[in-house]
């Protein structure tokens, strides 16, 4: 492990934490343009976070310590996840200790703490949000794992950087198995990040909300951390997508430190395109009824399994 690897490692986490609000800002801007609205500033999410951090936190009288710990745990796990995903370079010192299964476990841990914190105060909305989040999670989590497993079958590894390295060195174009899982992955990404067909981040309508219902009791810095963590999660998911399906531009082993110079702008461009793409999807689709969400995710899960079966059948 050279110094440059450690720098890449730290840079990935710091860049993710710093850029995640901007990604959301960009997504909101694109959405506004597509919907013929005047776009808010790209920096609005930052100002929002800053405002929240400055405020005095109000905590419900019957909240337990779990309620106060959860935002830090959720934010911390998302930050660590950014370090596991090879968004800039593949020579990461954390590679050996945390593979893709551990990454999904990390997301599951964040979800668990979030839902438990939502149930902690004991409001109707909190428990409802927790229940719905788990309903999304129990299908999205296995779907994500199955998506990753197709790629790990191809590259004989469950470590994301190794997968990226392997896929980046291959020919351009997706293998049939990966094509199925790419579709599945987009569905999972939308569901896991509370985007439009599954959840609407812009409303607080009790009939539909999932993520917002869980953080209703949070205020000030705790809310800021929860929101920031959600932005980081979106960032991370998009980067997982890059690692599996668009691994080009990442600093691989044989390119060396110079790769980082290319990798950072490459990542920025990829993120900008992905954000715009998400905005298009969100603008074109309508919110699903809550009861239909399992079907949506069931499709994702089946597609992912199908991807794996196709891969096994074709023996590529």
């Amino acid at each position: 492990m050279s110094a440059i690897d450690w720098i890449t490692q730290v840079l990935e986490v710091v860049a993710a934490v710093a850029a995640a609000p901007a990604l959301l800002g960009w997504l909101n801007q694109c959405r506004a343009w597509l919907q013929n609205r005047r776009a808010p500033s790209l920096w609005l999410p930052y100002r929002n976070l800053h405002k929240l951090f400055r405020k005095e936190a109000v905590i419900a009288e019957n909240a337990s310590p779990l309620f106060r710990i959860a935002p830090y745990v959720v934010f911390g796990t998302m930050g660590l996840a950014a370090g596991i995903i090879p968004s800039m370079g593949t020579q990461l010192p954390l590679v050996g200790s945390a593979d893709a299964i551990a990454l999904v476990g990390l997301f599951a841990a964040a979800r668990m703490f979030m839902t438990l914190a939502a149930m902690d105060v004991g409001t109707a909305f909190g428990t409802m949000g927790a229940r719905r989040e788990m309903m999304v999670g129990f299908l999205a989590e296995p779907a994500l794992l199955m998506v990753i497993f197709v790629a790990s079958q191809i590259s004989s590894s469950t470590a994301l950087p190794v997968i990226t390295e392997h896929l980046a060195s291959g020919r351009l174009g997706l293998s049939p198995g990966l094509a199925f899982s790419a579709v599945a992955f987009i569905l999972v990404l939308l569901a896991e990040n509370a985007r439009i067909p599954v959840d609407n981040p812009a409303t607080h309508l009790e009939l539909t909300m999932i993520h917002e219902a869980m953080v209703l009791e949070y205020s000030a810095r705790h809310l800021a951390l929860m929101e920031w963590a959600a932005q980081l999660k979106l960032f991370n998911y998009i980067c997982i997508g890059f690692a599996l399906f668009f691994p080009w531009g990442v600093a691989t082993a044989h390119i060396g430190p110079v790769g980082l110079v290319v990798a950072i702008p490459a990542l920025a461009i990829k993120l900008a395109v992905a954000g715009a793409g998400l905005a298009v999807i969100e603008t074109l689709s309508a919110k699903l009824r809550v009861m239909r969400i399992p079907e949506f995710l069931g499709t994702a899960f089946l597609l992912a399994v199908l991807g794996l079966l196709v891969h096994v059948l074709l023996g590529t």
Binding site: F53, R54, E56, A57, V58, I59, A60, E61, N62, Y72, V121, G122, T123, A124, F125, H204, L216, E217, S219, R221, L225
Partner: peptide, 17 residues
């Protein structure tokens, strides 16, 4: 969070919208 901002906390009844 502690260094950059304050750590003021107030306890109140649950908000519940």
């Amino acid at each position: 969070v502690r260094l950059a901002y304050h750590q003021r906390v107030r306890r109140g009844p649950a908000w519940d919208c």
